[in-house]
Design a protein around this nucleic acid. Sequence first.
DNA 1: GAGTTTGAAACT
DNA 2: CAGTTTCAAACTC
Length: 377
Amino acid sequence: MGESEGSEFPPKKQQQSETADFPAKKLARQLDFTQGVLPDHPQSQLSPVVVTPLSAQCQLQPHPQPQPQVVSILVSPQQQTQQQPAVRVVKPESPKSRPRPNAELKDGTPKKQKQCNCKHSRCLKLYCECFASGTYCDGCNCVNCYNNVENEAARREAVEATLERNPNAFRPKIASSPHGARDSREETGEGLVFVKHNKGCHCKKSGCLKKYCECFQANILCSENCKCMDCKNFEGSEERQALFHGDHGNNMAYIQQAANAAITGAIGSSGYASLPVSRKRKGQELFFGKTVNDPSSHRLGHFQQASHIRHAALSSLLPSNPVARAGNTTTLGSSKITYRSLLADIIQSQDLKELCSVLVVLSGEVAKTLSECGPFA
DNA sequence: GAGTTTGAAACT
DNA sequence: CAGTTTCAAACTC
């Protein structure tokens, strides 16, 4: 389309001298750096960092934050009263808050805060990991960065614009399920946290087994929220287990190779975009007499998957649970692989008891913390 | 390190 | 809301 310079770009951006070298295109919802409040909320008296009836430990830390991150973002009073009484966003280890490989030591130990490499977004869009996570850029490799204290006004505008598009933009994508809705689980070194992606992913080609997939990146299973195609990121998935199970568990090269093999094989055998669900779930859908292209079938598949996830997640806590194995071997059909919990070789019954105790205590602590920080669900 | 692929975000 | 474009991370070579 014709992107004649100057015509569609609001002249008001001239206020910021650094914008001179910013690509004068796109950004149809261009930020107005000259104003401090949203037009929609002229009454809002927003301070640069609005925060939130939060307790002391919930204060904004521009950079860096320990995890869980505590992020404050701008919201209008209207939004505050509507659905986000507390603007604070406690991020679990969301995909975009985890240190990337280049931010780690060779042994995988996180060394420093993630650093973005934005070039065209001024770090004022959700493309920017720093901005998305509610933090200022600090030591990043970005170009023409506005996500810093010096450009707080612009940043504030961007936050408002982003919130205008999506009031949940700065809320954690990966949410735990504190009310018992255990749709997935995050396998951490410390234990299991039942979480799922709020919006769900929309992956098409990655099989949800690469870090392109936000669910996979967050180390969680895809859920009924996802609209992904040919998903292999579900409990009991052969391909997924190939990534995490066995002696190759720490071999990233093997993991990636296995993922590629799984993805390539899936595409090669069933064709790209053939099925929105995996072979396992295809079998389930056939069992239910649903057609693949039926959108409701897709949803059903995910719903069934989610149900399976819940079952399997709980089953995984019981390494020798015969139901878990029988169920999976059945659904896997002709597969020679017998499903075993990923933790089967790790957790002993005594460990399980201890784990349950820890979880009980932890849930109490979480509930306490949530009550202190205010509701944000 | 350059180029490609991928999918979320932004935009139309 | 669906389709397209933009963007930056992930990935490959």
